[in-house]
Structure formats: structure tokens, C-alpha cells
Design a protein around this nucleic acid. Structure first.
Length: 340
DNA sequence: AATGATGCCAACCGCCAATCA
DNA sequence: ATGATTGGCGGTTGGCATCAT
């Protein structure tokens, strides 16, 4: 980037690309890489603006693009991600390998949106159109909606990590956690654990990166408020012990995998030192707190009356990270085995 | 067969954040 | 600090294909 020494005004071509133009662009990029898009057209012998070249490359010519019909799995993924992210096509595309944001956007606008509308679902809100009011179902939908908003923030953090971090192991773990978090929630009375852990987080560490103002429990996009006594926060111990939250988020298969692994169970017992009274605290740092929140694991035991954290720190932060990394790495092939 | 409606998708447009001189 | 420029993003458009009348 920077200031170029811009130059001659050439009559730039618009409209559909010809085969010859495609070949020129492909040949140039294959040999030199695209470099500065601004200067590429002249070097490649194209009478197009750099922007047009970039678009043609990213949306059509790039070799790692998958074209053609979207699979049912891809459709489902788009719908769910749209519910979480809204019209943030590039973010959605990041979760659909080989699909471009433009393609996903077109597919949504021309097909999926209409299909949802026909099904009586508002494609903007992903809620039933004719069910206003306060039914349990709609309240549950509202819970999901707010979870979705938090998921949005978390997905952004994941995307940031993916860009900034070369630590593929951590990224793997984040993605694994993402699958757990995005799994559909059946109707049930348990409050959303994402919100629980954030409540605890707020009470414990106060507003940080994701909070817009001190003392408020707001997502970047939400103005949701909570009554302080309405939420029961499970502990790591209780969750690990009975899978309540994990099951409530359709992630029982994850716990099944974990429980079926003797090594993992041993690590759990040793590291967490489960207590019947659930008065277990767990070391917290913010990113891991978020992750555990996404999994439905409150990082600390929480007594709602005082919004105070109860219990002491069990270990060091690094221990917690290592523990979760080890735990998650022991679960075989989560990406393939978990329905998303 | 002709015409209009609809579907689809590549490409363009305008905006914005990041970057650089 | 400032202004120019780039790259990226989401919204929109234009044109071709298909369908319905």
C-alpha cells in the first residue's frame, strides 16, 4: 500500500471477462504472484482496473475454489453461520473452505433466503415470523439469539487468532470448541452457559475487551440485561460430573468421547479434583474463560446472590491451558465426527 | 412462437479501515 | 498528524438463461 505514482488514464474495460483476459491474469499471477493489484493490470497486459483483476482472481480464477452445487452440509453451515454472523459473508466464507464470499452471498440471496421465507422463518432474524410474544419457545429463541451474538464476538476472536497466530494447535482447539458451541440447543430450562460464564466473568474480572461499559453485561451487539438471580452457574466439576450443560447443547457425543477415554478421565480426576459439593474454582484467563464458556463450562463456581466468585485458584494459568490442550487433543477427530 | 416474469450469478459500486509517504 | 491510496467488504446491478403464460 501507500502512495503510488499514478499515471496515465487508460480506457479501462468493464463487463464480463474474456477467456484471453483470464489466461493473461492467470499466467501473470502464476509467475509473479499478484503483488500490487494496482500495478498488476499494466504488467499483465490487461486493460482492467486492479480491483476488477482482484475480484476476478478471488471469485473465479483462484485454483482453490470449489464451484458448483452446494451440499446440504454446506447449506446448513451457511444458515447457521448466518444466524450467528449476519451478512458477514467473508466471515462465513472463512468457515467454508473453497467457497468465496460472493458465491455464498449469491447463494443466500437467491436461494436460502427464499427457502427460509417459505418455511415461515424470517431470514433476517432466523426466528419464526408469526410467533411474537413470550412463549417458552420464543424465549428460548431469544436465548439462542444472544448466544449467537456472543458467538459472533468469539468467532471474531478466532478469526483474529487464525490471522495472528501460527499456533495451529490452539487454532485447532478453538475450532473444536466452536463446534461444540454452535451445536443446536434443544429446548430446555437451563440458562445459556455462554451467558453464565460471562456473568461470572463480569463479576470476577470486570469488563474487558468485549464489554462496552463497566457494569453492563453487553455483547458488542446486544443490550440484553440479566436479572442477577435468574441464572444458576454450574461448576467445572458439576459439568464434568453429569454432563448437564454439555448434553443441553447437543454435545453429549463430545463428553461421551471424553468419558470413554480412560486417560482423559484420569486427567480430569487428577487435575480437577472433583468435589461433590461443586465448590471448585478453576484458573481463568480471559481467552480460556471464553472457550470454556462456549463449551458450557463455567470457569468458577458462582453464587448468584453476591455475584462473588467462590473458591480459590486451583492451579496456574498455564496449567489450565495445557490441561485443555491435552484434553482436546486426546479426543479423536472432532472435526469429522461432530455434526455441525 | 412471442413475450414477460423469475432465477441466477458475475461483476461493479461505494464505503471503510489500514497503510504509507 | 495528515492526506492519498490500497485492499477488502457488503450491497446492488445488469445480463443471460430458464420458466410460465
Amino acid at each position: 500500500m501507500g502512495k503510488p505514482n499514478d499515471n496515465a488514464k487508460v480506457e479501462l474495460k468493464k463487463g464480463p471477462w474474456t477467456r484471453e483476459e483470464d489466461q493473461k491474469l492467470l499466467a501473470y499471477i502464476e509467475e509473479h504472484g499478484h503483488g500490487s493489484w494496482r500495478s498488476l493490470p499494466a504488467k499483465a497486459g490487461l486493460q482492467r482496473c486492479g480491483k476488477s483483476c482482484r475480484l476476478r482472481w478471488t471469485n473465479y480464477l483462484r485454483p482453490d475454489i470449489k464451484r458448483g452445487k452446494f451440499s446440504p452440509h454446506e447449506e446448513k453451515t451457511i444458515i447457521r453461520l448466518h444466524a450467528l454472523l449476519g451478512n458477514r459473508w467473508s466471515a462465513i466464507a472463512a468457515h467454508l473452505p473453497k467457497r468465496t464470499d460472493n458465491e455464498i452471498k449469491n447463494y443466500w440471496n437467491t436461494r436460502l433466503k427464499k427457502r427460509l421465507t417459505r418455511m415461515g422463518i424470517d431470514p433476517a432474524t432466523h426466528k419464526p415470523k408469526n410467533n411474537p410474544g413470550g412463549s417458552a419457545q420464543s424465549r428460548h429463541a431469544a436465548d439462542l439469539s444472544h448466544m449467537a451474538q456472543w458467538e459472533t464476538a468469539r468467532l471474531e476472536a478466532e478469526a483474529r487468532l487464525a490471522r495472528e497466530s501460527k499456533d495451529s494447535k490452539l487454532l485447532f482447539n478453538l475450532r473444536f470448541l466452536n463446534k461444540v458451541a454452535v451445536a443446536p440447543a434443544p429446548p430446555q430450562p437451563v440458562a445459556p452457559p455462554c451467558l453464565d460464564v460471562l456473568k461470572v466473568w463480569q463479576a470476577t474480572v470486570g469488563p474487558k475487551r468485549f464489554f462496552s461499559s463497566p457494569g453492563s453485561l453487553e455483547s458488542p451487539t446486544s443490550t440484553l440485561n440479566f436479572s442477577s438471580n435468574s441464572v444458576t452457574v454450574p461448576t467445572v466439576g458439576s459439568v464434568m460430573a453429569n454432563n448437564v450443560i454439555m448434553n443441553s447443547y447437543g454435545a453429549s457425543d463430545v463428553m461421551e468421547k471424553i468419558n470413554s477415554c480412560e486417560e482423559v478421565k484420569g486427567k480430569m480426576e487428577n487435575s480437577l479434583q472433583l468435589h461433590d459439593d461443586n465448590n471448585l474454582a478453576y484458573p481463568v484467563d480471559h481467552d480460556y474463560d471464553m472457550m470454556m464458556g462456549s463449551m458450557g463450562l463455567a470457569a468458577v463456581n458462582h453464587h448468584s446472590e453476591g455475584d462473588n466468585m467462590v473458591g480459590g485458584v486451583v492451579g496456574e494459568f498455564e496449567d489450565a491451558k495445557n490441561y485443555w490442550n491435552e484434553l482436546l487433543n486426546l479426543v479423536s477427530s472432532p472435526m469429522e465426527s461432530l455434526e455441525f
